[in-house]
Nucleic acid binder design. Structure first.
Lengths: 295, 295
DNA sequence: AGCTAACGTTCGCTAAAAAAGAACAATCAT
DNA sequence: ATGATTGTTCTTTTTTAGCGAACGTTAGCT
């Protein structure tokens, strides 16, 4: 014997308002029908959901429990209808990618490349903070989030982080600074531009400095890779960053890679929600990206 | 025009199996009825949920989205029915309290005291790690969690932390150690037992040490208050802990309070889920506890 | 206290929907 | 080709939801 979700829905509405008559009006059904349905639900569940106090309905202990579930259930239902109502995904396939704003643009482009020449799909790209993007992912407003850190999921947030790439990190500076000794010595006495204290690259870099008993002069802490690229190009300071970010400048010769930092990597993750039915397009994209980028 | 949850339910079942006929059999309805209902749902939502490929049904892009929501919805529905089926809360009121295992037993007892002499309610008390307890709270298997740290809630985890008490923290040691100078000086050259590095008490204590340019000798890091009590009693080391934990020993004179640490507190929180309809019992308990403990 | 308006419940009856069943079309395996 | 299998589309039957009037309470008013 299955739960009748229409009964539950009506119970939900009555519990919200606390009045049977008023709820019947808003639902455009009679009081009697509503009363009967709630009675049926109570019989189905085996215990009263309301305590009848005079001419008032108060939630019972069991009613409060049932209400919490009903609330969760129908809020999601309304979210679903709203989603389909507000435009509909029409025919063309849609893939919506969220990227942490500080992420390398080159990496983003590389990830999206397989999608760019496809006429039959619509691509949405949103930038923002990780928290905001994960919220959108949970609300099904994004299909995948690109980030430079992994996120652990749990029962209620079924996130899955998949590492796509691992870029070495180098000391990089303007070519006009002239030749430079390799890492431990080269940076002594020079200003450094490094990633912010929350990033994994910074952690690894700090550890490396400790090992070499080195306390470098930090000129600036920069989260945004694009900004760091500009600073590396236009100042006389050295930057700690993945060479791939300034690939163009390295080729052109305006910037020089003064050597990779051992054990320091920037990692890229694709974060998705565990779904029972994955979009074949997304699945293919993630597999493809792993192959391309992990080489 | 509202969403028909029975249609959605049938869609959910069909999508899970991928076969219409088989699903119709398990649902004990005819294929035709099932087919018709899914058609109606598609019309209601304004786009096809299945792609008809030959004699097979495959989820469309929109179908995958709808399925994710339906899955969340009906999983909760099944949880609800299971909850009512497995025994029912019957008549007596039930309150289920989760307490972080490392929390002071005295505090737990103080919190539960108003409930202990009530014959008309059933009390459940579970100990465990914070993560585990919060999971149970989300699943409605607990009504309140007692912890020594607050938890921030978000849209999906509607947790609410309420501070119940704030206990001063002292340097405490065996009386036989003899008199001791107050904090900054007294601890010099002595071993200390302190709370683990994750706790707020430890953080506050470390800050205090920095201010006084003090680097004390850490003998042990202990999370469990009951264990710390034993160590304080049975070793020659000083412990950083709230006096209330060893109230009995202080009265008996076996332990001595060598002075409160300024600005260091252990805080106790009651964590509940934001519910539209709170249990009056729980509400009363929390108000009562605040008054009693915050004095 | 006695009246009245508001509220929830119960009981037949009717309208709407869900489900069954038969006929049909498409696909796959042999 | 052909029969078995699967999904769709009809029409008919069965079940469920809903209506409205009568009824029983309760709270508020005079």
């Amino acid at each position: 014997m299955k739960l009748n979700y229409h009964h539950l829905y009506h119970f939900w509405q009555v519990a919200r308002s606390g009045h049977l008559t008023r709820t019947a009006e808003t639902l455009h059904i009679s009081q009697s029908a509503l009363s009967h349905q709630i009675r049926q639900l109570e019989e189905r569940l085996g215990q009263p959901l309301f305590v009848r106090e005079g001419r008032q309905l108060r939630l019972s202990e069991a009613g409060r429990l049932a209400f919490d579930y009903a609330d969760a259930i129908f809020r999601q239902g309304e979210e679903l209808t709203a989603l389909f109502a507000e435009g509909g995904h029409a025919h063309r396939e849609v893939i919506r990618v969220g990227a942490v704003a500080t992420l390398s643009r080159n990496f983003q482009e590389e990830f999206l490349r397989p999608l760019l020449d496809r006429e039959d799909l619509e691509l949405g790209l949103q930038s923002g903070g990780l928290d905001e993007l994960l919220r959108r992912l949970s609300a099904h407003r994004l299909d995948v989030v690109l980030a430079n850190q992994s996120v652990r999921g749990d029962d209620q947030h079924p996130w899955r982080s998949q590492r796509l790439a691992r870029q070495p990190v180098s000391i990089i500076g303007a070519t006009r600074l002239g030749p430079l000794a390799p890492f431990p010595e080269g940076v002594a006495g020079r200003g450094l531009i490094v990633p912010g204290p929350e990033s994994s690259v910074r952690h690894a870099f700090d550890r490396l400095c400790e090992v070499h008993r080195l306390s470098p002069t930090i000129i600036a802490e920069v989260d945004d890779m694009a900004l760091m690229r500009l600073l590396a190009r236009d100042t006389a300071h050295l930057a700690v960053m993945p060479p791939v970010v300034v690939r163009d400048e390295l080729r052109a010769g305006t910037l020089t890679d003064f050597g990779a930092l051992p054990g320091v990597f920037e990692e890229f993750y694709a974060i998705t929600i565990r779904r029972r039915f994955e979009s074949p397009l997304l699945k293919q994209l993630l597999e493809q990206s792993s192959e391309l980028l992990l080489q």
